[in-house]
Structure formats: C-alpha cells, structure tokens
C-alpha cells in the first residue's frame, strides 16, 4: 500500500474513532470538544475527496461555530444545574433509542447499497446550468449554488433567520427588545483581549477575501460569512463589543438583507430573463456577487445572534 491510501485509511479510522468517543463521553464539555475535533477531521476528509469548498464550510461551521454554540448551550445547562444530575434514562428507553438509531442507520445503509448503477444523478443538469446561466464564474460550486439551486440556497438563509427568531422567542416576555446577555460575565483576561484585537481585523480581511474569491476559486458566501461571524463572537467574548439590542433596526435589516435581496433579484429575473431566479446572460456574474455580498452580511449577523441567546434584561 502506498503512502496516501494508507493515510486515508488512517484518517477514516480516526474519524470513526473520534465519533465513537464523542458519543461515549460522559461529560458534556468533553463530548463537545470531541465534536469539534470530529468536525476538523471531517474537513480533512473533504479535502482528500477533492471538495475544498465543503472542507472550508465544515471547518468553519462544523468545527468552529457549532462548537461555540454547543459550549455556550452546555454552560447554560450547567447554570440550570439539571443537565447531568437528572434521572438517567431507564433501560427500556435506552434500548428503544438504540433500536431507533440502528433502524435509521440501517435504512440509510440499505438505500445506499441498493442504489441502481449508475445511480440517478442531477450532475449533468447542474453542470449544464453552471455552464449556462452561471457562466462567468470560475468556481462551478458557486455557480450551482446561486444559479442551479438558487431557491434552496435562499431558503437555507431563511432557515437561519427562523432559527434566530426561535432563539429570541424563548426569552421572557418582559425582556423582548432588549439585548442578549454579554457572552462573558466578568472582565475577560488580557490574553483574550489581545487575541481579539489582533485576530479580529485579520479574520475580517480573510472572511471578505474568501467570499470574494468564491466566485472563481474555493470559497464563497457561507464560508466567508461564518468567518466574519466567528470574528464577531471573538470580539464579544473579549467584551470589545456587546450583543446589540434585538429591536435594533440595523440588526434586523442586516438579518433579512440576504434573503430579501436574493428574492428581489430572483423575482426581477421574471421580467429581465424570462424566468424566476434567472439572471440576464451578460450580467450574471456581478448580480451573483451582489446577492452573495448581502448573504455574507446576513450569515455574519445571524450566527453570532444564535450564540448570544435570547434577550435578557429590561427593554429600555
């Protein structure tokens, strides 16, 4: 066996091992750390599968943002002091949960194993769309995301906004409109402040760069937006910035800007290019970058608001 396949097999075994460890860990924090490591390893797997765009997303979202989200959620559960001291589930419930999980995994495995050969594929249609309406973009992934499956891409961002609304609505009625609690109660360490002061400007630049090159090279709106969101979170953890009030007009405009601009351009396609979500042939690339810029803004705002949690304190 040559070196690369051996490394691949090692990587695959490592992913499965870390996944098993994440599930088996008794401690909430340990399993979150396991999950973050799992996300980073998965990003390496995507690189080996020649999918750098997916790898970037996995590293930013699976490894980074989800990790912060889970750590914060875990801390809130700890504060409730009921997360790990509750009555452990009974044997029957455990067996039932295990059986259900095995059933889902088995059904998925069965579907994958019994696929006809060649498997049904949308790839030719997507490639055609990327070469047609998405022409002018060097990165076929971005072309497919914004041109071939534009409606799905827009709805994904709507889901993000709905998630933020869901988080906001679990706050107390009296707190509606106020800002979420700061991410850290005490004044943070000097090291954290230094890290945020140095990292945030560099991270902002890299985030915008990843969005911008996404038209022609691996990268794109989600990856860039997630990086910007992470920089926002770092700044809030160092208390260099505070979560905004949720009734702030700027915040709400930024949240809906991505899907709103996408929808407006999409409907305009009906008049300008004879089809919903179609772009005029010679004008596709600037339009796609225009839409993506607002998507970046919405993602960069929505992800930190998810981490900040529900509004807390008194309105006004």
């Amino acid at each position: 066996m040559s070196v690369l396949p051996a490394l691949d097999v090692g990587l695959a075994l490592l992913v499965v091992g870390v996944a098993a460890w994440t599930i088996a860990a008794r401690n909430l924090f340990a399993s979150v750390v396991g999950y973050v490591a799992y996300g980073l390893l998965l990003a390496l797997v995507w690189v080996r599968l020649y999918a750098p765009d997916v790898a970037l997303t996995e590293a930013a979202v699976g490894g980074g943002v989800t990790g912060v989200l889970l750590v914060t959620a875990g801390k809130r559960l700890d504060a409730l002091a009921s997360a790990e001291v509750g009555v452990p589930p009974g044997r029957a419930l455990k067996i039932l949960a295990g059986a259900l999980a095995a059933l889902v995994a088995g059904a998925l495995a069965w579907v994958v194993l019994t696929l006809p050969s060649p498997a049904p594929s949308l790839a030719p249609a997507a490639a055609e769309a990327a070469a047609g309406p998405g022409a002018g973009l060097g990165n076929p992934i971005t072309a497919v995301l914004i041109s071939y499956r534009s409606f799905d891409t827009m709805l994904e961002k709507v889901v993000l906004i709905l998630a933020v609304l869901g988080v906001w609505s679990v706050g107390a009625d009296a707190a509606w409109g106020a800002a979420p609690a700061p991410l850290r109660k005490v004044r943070p360490d000097g090291a954290m402040i230094l890290l945020a002061q140095f990292l945030a400007p560099v991270g902002l630049l890299i985030g915008v760069h990843i969005f911008w090159v996404g038209a022609d090279a691996p990268g794109g709106a989600f990856q860039g937006g997630a990086l910007l969101a992470a920089m926002g979170m770092v700044a809030m953890m160092a208390r260099l910035a505070e979560p905004p009030r949720i009734d702030s007009r700027k915040l709400r405009l930024a949240l809906v800007a991505g899907p709103a601009v996408f929808l407006i351009v999409g409907v305009a396609g009906l008049a300008l290019a004879d089809n919903l979500f179609a772009y005029p042939q010679n004008f596709a690339k600037p339009l796609i970058l225009f839409i993506e810029a607002f998507m970046v803004l919405s993602i960069a705002v929505a992800l930190p608001m998810l981490v900040c949690g529900p509004p807390n304190g008194s309105p006004k």
């Binding site: 360490d189 090291a191 954290m192 230094l194 890290l195 140095f198 990292l199 560099v202």
Partner: peptide, 20 residues
C-alpha cells in the same frame, strides 16, 4: 507565513487562557 503567524497568536493566547 501568515498561517504560521496566526497559529502562533492563537496558540500563545489559548495556552495563556487555559493556564489561567
């Protein structure tokens, strides 16, 4: 070089944070 510098920065800061 920038990748190395970023790892230096985050490594040094997180080591401080964990140590404290």
């Amino acid at each position: 070089l920038v990748v190395w510098a970023l790892v230096l920065l985050s490594g040094a800061s997180t080591a401080q944070l964990i140590g404290r």
